[in-house]
């Protein structure tokens, strides 16, 4: 099976500014997820380098590689790091980490960095899990919700589906938004059902007057994702006569945050526009880990 469709592009950047030499504490965070791994290097609260990679079969190797790529050609080496904090599914495998921290706190802290003081609800749309986090005004987690097991693997399943359908994972979202109207979503119970149902939507179903267009098929699929995510956000958020209320800013992190086919549909149902960041939303966990490491170092 050709993986060029489902394999989203990796990304690496390191700053060429020499400002890190005067910045004080330099810390790094590494977030090893089931599907993707990120590392972020922060100096005095500013982002100096990052890497966003596919995790692969070796969690430890992915962590090390990400850290080295994040340091890149900035001039910094691992020795310059005052502390490295690890998080994510594979955090126990990060040999170079001085400490580890749970994903929720790291994402919350990282979301504040990425989206500013206005963010109150963070929806982390990852490879295997969907998490929703509510924040207080200050940097403290108020509440947290994770998907039930039968929604596991949503992000990962999209990689598989795109490979099967020969549609790039970066294109399927925008393409889905070309649909004039959203058909009924496919099954929202489990991605195995959703994928099977979507694969069957091509061709000439006997009972439909006209077959669905390509955009409508993708719309039906991504609508199902959005619907399931709404359930997680909804269980966490205040409710007013049945409608889910988002007080303050909503932000998406994780790989599916880059899929407008999902995020726009969630926004539409909630009647809000999500906050955006100049940085890659997949970095939230790693950035948060780095910031929390710096705060620990400073004795905060």
């Amino acid at each position: 099976m050709d993986h060029k469709y489902g394999r989203w592009p990796e990304d690496v950047w390191s700053s060429h500014s020499a400002g890190w030499r005067q910045a004080g504490k330099i810390t790094a965070g590494i977030d090893v997820g089931t599907t993707s791994t990120q590392a972020a290097v922060l100096c005095g609260g500013a982002l100096y380098g990052y890497a966003n990679l596919h995790t692969g079969a070796d969690f430890g190797a992915a962590a090390g590689r990400a850290l080295d790529l994040a340091l890149g050609d900035s001039g910094m080496t691992r020795a310059d790091l005052a502390a490295v904090c690890g998080t994510g599914f594979g955090k126990r495998n990060i040999a170079c980490a001085d400490s580890t921290m749970d994903e929720v706190h790291c994402h919350a802290r990282g979301a504040r960095f990425l989206f500013g003081a206005g963010v109150r609800t963070v929806a982390d749309l990852g490879g295997q899990t969907v998490k929703a986090i509510r924040l207080y005004d200050w940097n403290r987690v108020r509440d947290f919700m994770i998907n039930d097991k039968c929604a596991t693997g949503e992000g990962r399943s999209l990689e598989v589906l795109c490979d099967l359908l020969h549609i790039s994972i970066t294109e399927i979202g925008p393409k889905s938004l070309e649909a004039e109207r959203d058909p009924e979503p496919v099954s929202t119970t489990c991605w195995a059902y959703a994928n099977a149902e979507t694969l069957g939507l091509f061709g000439r179903p006997e009972f439909k007057a006209e077959p669905l267009t390509e955009a409508e098929i993708y719309a039906s699929h991504l609508f199902a994702y959005a619907w399931r995510i709404l359930g997680v956000i909804g269980r966490l958020s205040p409710l007013d006569a049945g409608e889910i209320q988002i007080d303050g800013g909503l932000a998406f992190t994780g790989g599916l945050a880059k899929n407008p086919g999902i995020t726009r549909r969630i926004e539409r149902e909630l009647g809000v526009t999500a906050l955006t960041s100049r940085w890659d939303p997949m970095l939230a966990g790693a950035i948060g880990a780095a910031l929390l490491a710096a705060e620990q170092e400073a004795g905060e």
């Binding site: 009924e184 099954s187 929202t188 059902y193 099977a196 149902e197 069957g200 939507l201 179903p205 009972f207």
Partner: peptide, 17 residues
Amino acid sequence: GSQPGDRVDLDEKRLID
């Protein structure tokens, strides 16, 4: 399927197949 009042898991195309 899910249940007669709940369309979620009924894959109509697959049922026809």
